[in-house]
């Protein structure tokens, strides 16, 4: 399948075709894939990469769920455009990303994925998890107190969270 939308990357990996695309082509690429028969959006996932950088990935397949295509873009929190007009299921995943990561999708309907009060955006890397503050890190134990080793720090816990 040759695509007319401009791609920034196109490779075969782990049995799927991986396509990278710029944020401005995100919607048009998915529209083109849908016209080509890729009518199932299996999921849309968002990852926080620090500061205001996010990666958003979708997996789309044809009706036979064969030859999956993974589409990925790197964007900031205000660049994405909703895919919910093409694939209704995208609404849930995008509302989830908005609620948990603070990514805004232009054109996405109001509403929340999880009907529970969530303060802040807990899936962002800079979100201080209460569980990480309440309990001392068990890895700080050093059995041989005389051994001069580099101080180990808990992974994923930012220095400014430490009280």
């Amino acid at each position: 399948m040759t695509l007319t939308t401009q791609l920034t990357g196109d490779r075969q990996q782990d049995g799927a075709r991986w396509i990278d695309v710029a944020p401005e082509n995100w919607h048009s690429l998915h529209a083109e894939l849908q016209r080509e028969g890729y009518v199932r959006l299996e999921w849309l996932a968002s990852v926080h990469e620090g500061d205001d950088n996010f990666q958003i990935v979708t997996r789309v397949t044809d009706v036979d769920v064969q030859s999956p295509v993974m589409v990925s873009m790197h964007c900031d929190s205000s660049e994405p455009v909703t895919l919910s007009d093409l694939f209704p299921i995208a609404q849930f995943h995008e509302q989830e990303a908005r609620q948990l990561l603070g990514v805004q999708f232009a054109g996405l309907a109001d509403g929340v994925a999880f009907d529970a009060p969530i303060a802040g955006h807990p899936l962002r890397r800079d979100f201080a998890l209460q569980a990480r503050l309440d309990k001392p890190w068990p890895g700080a134990v050093e059995p041989d107190a005389q051994a001069r080793r580099r101080l180990t720090l808990p992974p994923g816990v930012l220095a400014e969270w430490q009280l």
Partner: peptide, 17 residues
């Protein structure tokens, strides 16, 4: 201490000398 430090849930704890 490797398992203690790598466990994503901090659920292993060790005392040793």
């Amino acid at each position: 201490m490797l398992c203690v430090r790598e466990c994503p849930d901090w659920c292993i704890s060790i005392e040793a000398h």
